[in-house]
Design a protein around this nucleic acid. Sequence first.
DNA 1: TACGTTCTTAATCATATGCTCAAACCACTC
DNA 2: GAGTGGTTTGAGCATATGATTAAGAACGTA
Lengths: 212, 212
Amino acid sequence: MARSSDTRQRLVDAAVDVLRHEGFAAATARNIAAHADSNQGLVFYHFGSVVDLLLAALDEVSAQRRQRYEEALAGVHAPAELVDLAARVFREDLDTGDAALLVEMIAGATSTPGLGAEVKARVVPWTQFAAAALKSALGTSPLAGVVDPDEIAHAVVALYLGLELLSHLDGDRGPALALFERGRQLAPLAGLILGGSPASAGTSNPPNKEDP
Amino acid sequence: MARSSDTRQRLVDAAVDVLRHEGFAAATARNIAAHADSNQGLVFYHFGSVVDLLLAALDEVSAQRRQRYEEALAGVHAPAELVDLAARVFREDLDTGDAALLVEMIAGATSTPGLGAEVKARVVPWTQFAAAALKSALGTSPLAGVVDPDEIAHAVVALYLGLELLSHLDGDRGPALALFERGRQLAPLAGLILGGSPASAGTSNPPNKEDP
DNA sequence: TACGTTCTTAATCATATGCTCAAACCACTC
DNA sequence: GAGTGGTTTGAGCATATGATTAAGAACGTA
């Protein structure tokens, strides 16, 4: 009984590890079992199929991320702080391989029939979460009624995935990190525009620019 | 001899087709050969290996894109026009499946040893091309010395890939297209800020409904 | 201890893939 | 017409995968 949930957890952890560092194509029953010092038959005994194990791995990571993000979001009340948080989170996901895992699962879903809907159901809440955070951070800003949080969240998630894809391709996280660092530099400017005086609401006024 | 280049081309076209609509995992010698009404042995006779055929397919698509883009870029001189062109190009690539092909090759490169470097060599010039176009469009704009074209090009390509990934996941191109449409709406504003060119004036104008 | 349930292991099957190879085929020259 | 070089074909090999299964081990309980 304790044995069961133990190996189950070891398999999930191994699946997460394989997805992070070896990709979807390497996420086979035998390879994952080997990473868990286990037997490949256990994958099917405990999960029924390989894809169900991978979905369990995705669930595990999603739950961890969700918790981390909610904690971090507790201290965020201004758009500038949200940009800062996003940059930090992205760097973490790039380091741990969570971003790679997400990309691998989404990309792998295109080649595995039936997996698409399951992965979608696990990714959509994540972008909705980002949209909610953005909406909350916008608060009563003058732009709150102009920009569409869902649209921006969609773009941010896409940027997140695309940057991971590119940095994984050329083995250099530099450009991706530099980009988010630039975002952090611009965050105070965003705060200035979004949270500032109503004088900036006019459409004919050029926005203030600040040299970094 | 005419026979040879004929089947060679048919195989490349079939590989492009499979990558576009079925993905990297389905790009097997037998499947591609079947799409070309051909024999799987010919893949190895003409290309040596499957990945070499896939790289030839990527080369073919890259060449076509490059030519189309260079032609389209001939009429672009202002940042606003470049944004407009990018939105049109993205919509095309989403429709034809070229965006999917690119994502599949990049994602597939993570699971096929040795493919990464080859794909990278074929993607990097493409982002450099985007950077050059952006630099050219910026021209003598006051922001030309402030923003980094390479950085922005990297971000745009990442956004391109990420949006394809997401729209492929939930089978809905709507959000991606809406986002680029929003970019087109903002393009006149960007032109106002960047160039002060007489291209377009009012920022409260409804978006242009123009069919290419 | 003896029994039944749960869990684990290794062998096994059916299938698919990259790739090789010998034989057949075809267009062309002498 | 026979030979020649390039091209095509289908069978075959080694390997890998998802999934099944029967036999065995571990555990709780009577």
